[in-house]
Design a binder for these strands. Structure first.
Lengths: 202, 202
DNA sequence: AAGTTTGTAGTACAGCTGTGCTAACAATCA
DNA sequence: TGATTGTTAGCACAGCTGTACTACAAACTT
């Protein structure tokens, strides 16, 4: 007998493999069951519907990312801590490249699938909060402007933009170029710590 | 009799409507034909395959964006020109919000659909080139750092990141907040025109 | 030991898909 | 006039989809 929770994980991983190889629309109940080496009936024993399976697969990805972040060794220097956390979120190796592609597919699907929307928003909020913390710490150390919410939003957008670009053009956006891009942004934040006048925008 | 080119456009617009309302996977030959008020047979007269229809619909979106950019009135001041071009690329109104959602769906699909990949890369290259031009002009006027390729990449990622965020959370990312975010970035570029030392990154 | 729950498999069903095919109608040209 | 071409419609086909259902074995409970 296999642990049910473990079997659900195996099925979630089968979903992710199929999604990455053939696209989200190929992640049918049949294809996922075959990928996992199970029958349709078995799969349905663990997930009552396809939607449930998809939600669980997405949740698995989110959990994995959060676990990795929580496992980072403590780093007192805010600049180095920022770089490490952000590097952990970028698709620098194959495992995270896969997660990134899956994230993109789920994000797109969540535009029209209410069940996935809540999860997507959860991931969005978590990433936004993480960026806020990073910028707040940098700002407190004089390494970022004082307008923390604005800089957090900018960092968040930059991070997701880089992730999308890396998914689209993995040949151009190598691990090194992504890391460098983030490092450059953090450097730039440190050189403009003075609050700017908000009256001459537009 | 209707102009064939015009009818193809009508069908492409039907694709975009269905995609935005029900998701890309609902943009089947049948649904699109019904949306356009035509029979399946008629649709197939204009597009020999579903792939052809999709590619044409994507191309329509790209053409529309390029047309809008080309129609911008000339603006001598590089800072204001940058802001205007970038505002044109952000999902600030309903029409461009629709385009943005469609772009996201196509981008996701292009991960596994070779026919769309070429178009997606074309759009990516065009946007990248546009960002490069903007930054180069700003840099020449002393309003941006001298490392133009790096800053172009940063601006490009920021732009796409904001677009993704706006698609995910249109309630948070209003037209005003998007415009402000870009304006703030352009301001920030102007305050750090000195080239930075590349040796202490990481 | 009997009964109950849990896991696995297989099948059936209605509904959708893309595509190929045929037929009818309109317009143009010889 | 007849013939050809362009346009619209509709159907048939094979194949896939999610879900419901039954059947059977293994494990656990009482």
């Amino acid at each position: 007998m296999v642990d049910p929770a473990e079997r659900r994980l195996l099925l979630a991983e089968a979903v992710l493999r199929v999604m990455r190889r053939d696209g989200l629309e190929q992640a049918s109940v049949r294809n996922v069951a075959r990928e996992a080496g199970l029958s349709m009936g078995s799969l349905r024993h663990y997930f009552a519907s396809q939607s449930e399976l998809m939600v669980f697969a997405f949740r698995t990805v989110i959990d994995r990312i959060e676990l990795r972040l929580a496992g980072l060794e403590p780093e007192p220097d805010p600049r180095r801590r920022a770089q490490r956390v952000l590097n952990e979120l970028l698709p620098l190796d194959d495992e995270r490249r896969a997660e990134n592609e899956v994230w993109l597919a789920f994000t797109s699907r969540a535009m029209v699938d209410p069940a996935l929307r809540a999860l997507r928003d959860e991931g969005y909020d978590a990433l936004r909060a993480g960026c806020h913390t990073i910028v707040a710490d940098l700002s407190a150390a004089g390494l970022a402007p004082t307008d923390v919410p604005a800089e957090a939003e900018r960092l968040h957008a930059l991070l997701d933009g880089l992730a999308v670009h890396a998914a689209m053009r993995p040949d151009i956006h190598t691990a090194e170029s992504l890391t460098t891009a983030i490092a450059r942004h953090l450097d730039a934040l440190a050189t403009e710590p003075a609050p700017r006048d908000a009256s001459d925008r537009g």
